[in-house]
Nucleic acid binder design. Structure first.
Lengths: 341, 341
DNA sequence: CTGTTAGCGCTTTCAA
DNA sequence: TTGAAAGCGCTAACAG
């Protein structure tokens, strides 16, 4: 019962014409009689013909497929980026192959290789936190497969990049905390290797510096993951300091939520005793109690823009001479986990 | 500079041997001299040869790719299912093409068609809420492409199904509310068309009935989406009743969170005045205030099991005579948004 | 052990 | 307007 799908040759045979004629009829080529064309179309329908895209791709050398590699799919940030990408490329008839690296360099490397073997036309990549060398991406350039890097930069690897101004986001957040009277502002930082985290750290430091506050090592805790549990652990350490912070700027909302839980557990008030600011502005963040002040990022736009740039490469025959660098602006959303001005 | 990737023929030419010999060498076939084999391998490396999977797939009629179609990727539920699928199929060397239907029948139909044209080996599908007929899935069966339906059932379409016992989950939740003294238990229900929502509704009704409480139409609000905003709207209506509920069983956690926000806004206490129970047990749910009582589902396992069943089909030559039906058990996680026993 | 041939399904010359 | 032939990159059957 698993019958072989019908091919263009089957149609040709059934109609006693050449396969090439069938092909022409199906693509309404100019040089075809209306008569045969109709006959072919009718027969194609009758035989439930479906073109085999593998054969088409093999011939055309284009699969109309884009490989998307993200550290994880289960986060609001990346899944929303993907939505943006999806909406952008759908109209152009591109498919998406979405893969997660689980923050592992090896998996990322393997995924890229597999997708390249399967001849995706281009890549959209946000590198894993463990990725420190980019030879695997360099190879793609050598093979002439365009790559757009998004959100997380790859220092030393030249490519189109669409990033968020994490420095500015962090700066806005921390400066706001300072203006509302906080003086001992802690930072729960993310993996050292990620440019996003580095830039947020830099923004944090810069804001302190601008307002003549010193950057104290004690007040900086680093987490390796991005979960609320990580946030809990870091916050415990911060609260145990002989002189605990009066504000925490967390690397993201999930971590901030964990921090809030511990702070409440210790009987401290938010924001009276400790202010909290997160990063990402996840959909849930406004529903926490108190609602979470957070740095919003143009996530959907990030996906749209990255894929638009990639598709420009794909549709233009010539190799672009220079790489684009786009920096999207985040915005501080003030809620109740921080004090009023 | 966009140089053509080297092929098996290139290697053959360079070594002055036949393409088939190269192929054999690269697959360490038994009938090949170690000498030529080494030479081929060396040359392949030197020329940076990468097999073209399109050609391989065209020949073998298998792409080692599975199409995954979910309503949306940006939800904890589906993205976690996908993680489970990913982890399961990776070992078997299968790739995933992940697509979202955005709850639209038309998009779902189109996605299935496109993936079929691209010859995915099998499908993992959770249908859109708007999908009411399954002719597009029926077609897949006709073409002999195996399909496993997960989470949301397709009534009238025979296939392997891996579902969660939503009836039982809802029953547990509502019975618990009754046992803690609630008597006017409202239900914020989801789209009528979804079997998951129907079953939760049935479980709700059955629990009431078992404890001799009547099912009141007034106490049932239906939402079309699954967002917190939907939950807010529904809750406003419920609280405006002349005799408002003393508990709300929400179709999922996001809706429950919206409900909590409105309840607090009205100055009512949770759970003293109104108990709340959600469904999904999202990672954040325990961090809300009060922490949310919710029905946990074995989401990751759902992904693992569904893909395992699919892969069984793919590896066995014979058409399986009967379809499997798996029902996974959910579990009520009791927290602080409901009263103690 | 190796080469030749054929063919997967399709498109695109080149003739007719 | 149509057909025949070649070939995309690869594998497998058959000779030798």
């Amino acid at each position: 019962m698993k019958k072989r799908p019908s091919t263009i040759t089957d149609i040709a045979r059934a109609l006693n014409i050449a396969a090439s004629t069938v092909s022409r009829a199906l693509h309404d080529s100019p040089s075809i009689s209306n008569e045969t064309k109709q006959a072919v179309i009718k027969m194609a329908k009758q035989m439930d013909y479906q073109p085999n895209m593998l054969a088409v791709s093999l011939l055309s050398k284009r699969t109309k497929t884009i490989g998307v590699i993200v550290p994880e799919i289960t986060s609001y940030f990346f899944s929303t980026v993907i939505s943006g990408v999806q909406d952008m490329v759908n109209e152009a008839g591109y498919k998406l192959v979405i893969c997660q690296s689980n923050e592992s360099f090896e998996e990322e490397q393997k995924l890229i290789e597999t997708l390249a073997l399967n001849r995706v036309d281009g890549f959209l990549i946000s590198p894993a936190s463990k990725t420190m060398k980019f030879s695997h991406l360099e190879r793609l350039r050598t093979s002439g497969i365009p790559v757009v890097v998004f959100d997380r930069d790859c220092p030393g690897f030249e490519a189109d990049r669409v990033l968020v101004d994490d420095f500015d986001g962090a700066f806005q957040a921390v400066e706001y905390l300072i203006k509302t009277g906080c003086r001992r502002i802690a930072h729960i930082a993310g993996p050292k290797n990620l440019t996003t985290c580095q830039h947020r750290m830099d923004g944090y430091a810069k804001a302190l510096q601008k307002h003549h506050l010193s950057v104290e090592e004690d007040l900086i805790e680093r987490v390796e993951g991005f979960t609320s549990e990580d946030g809990e652990e870091a916050t415990k350490l911060l609260l145990n300091l002989h002189s605990p912070p009066d504000a925490i700027f967390a690397i993201n909302d999930a971590v901030a939520i964990g921090a809030m839980a511990i702070i409440r557990e210790r009987g401290l008030r938010i924001p009276e005793d400790i202010s909290i600011v997160g990063f990402d502005d996840e959909p849930y963040s406004k529903y926490f109690h108190p609602s979470l002040t957070s740095v919003w990022q143009p996530v959907y736009e990030l996906g749209m823009l990255s894929s638009k740039i990639l598709m420009n490469h794909l549709s233009s025959e010539i190799d672009n001479p220079h790489y684009r660098y786009e920096l999207l602006k985040p915005e501080l959303i003030i809620r109740k986990s921080s004090k009023d001005l």
